[in-house]
């Protein structure tokens, strides 16, 4: 049984589970949207005294922080007990394209070249990771949601703004992949 669970899960199981998570949160009287947590953490850290955007009653958002804590635990559970011993089945063309950028496929979830100690502690690596995160944080708040809020909750509720936002996610992602990656790596 454990061997079975340890295999990578197919897309339809994952997609089904994610829609179920959205419905569970609706049933709990909440709405699935992860990036709101970033605003809440800023608020808890005291940003509300200086910036009006963070001056709100964050106690109402504690449920989402608990969801965040759960997601960290979930990642830990998989890495400790449920991870597959085999390398991920990345497509050969992606492996080849990345090799052209000097990023080698090592079989893990994330390249150790980018998420290992050496890169993260180098000035360039630190800056790349920090800037990438900042773009995500700034963009998700400006766009009013991230992948969960727009792509899952918004599209499921047939929201046109969400469709536009998701289109934007892809424009940015393609620009980074094809235009900026060759300059950065």
């Amino acid at each position: 049984m454990l061997e079975f669970i340890r295999q990578p899960w197919p897309w339809y199981i994952s997609g089904f589970a994610i829609s179920l998570i959205m419905v569970m949160l609706l049933y709990f009287g909440k709405s699935f949207g992860f990036s709101s947590n970033l605003r809440t953490i800023c608020s808890i850290s005291g940003a509300g005294s200086r910036v009006k955007f963070f001056d709100f009653d964050w106690h109402k958002e504690i449920w989402n922080l608990l969801f965040l804590v759960g997601s960290i635990i979930g990642g830990y559970i998989v890495s400790q007990w449920l991870s597959s011993p085999d390398p991920i089945q990345l497509s050969a063309s992606t492996i080849n394209d990345l090799k052209g950028l000097g990023i080698h496929f090592d079989g893990g979830l994330n390249p150790s070249q980018l998420f290992g100690k050496d890169f993260a502690t180098s000035p360039k690596g630190f800056l790349v990771l920090l800037t990438g995160g900042a773009l995500v944080g700034f963009g998700s708040r400006y766009a009013g949601g991230c992948t969960s809020g727009h792509a899952i909750s918004g599209l499921s509720n047939l929201q046109i703004p969400s469709f536009i936002a998701v289109t934007g996610f892809f424009i940015g992602g393609l620009a980074m992949t094809y235009l900026f990656f060759p300059l950065i790596f």
């Binding site: 947590n37 995500v136 944080g137 963009g139 400006y142 766009a143 991230c146």
Partner: peptide, 17 residues
């Protein structure tokens, strides 16, 4: 706004969750 997010998503390979 979405494309700003997308730039970061592709660079870090991670959205907030």
């Amino acid at each position: 706004d979405g494309s700003i997010f997308g730039l970061g998503w592709a660079l870090t390979g991670a959205c907030p969750g």
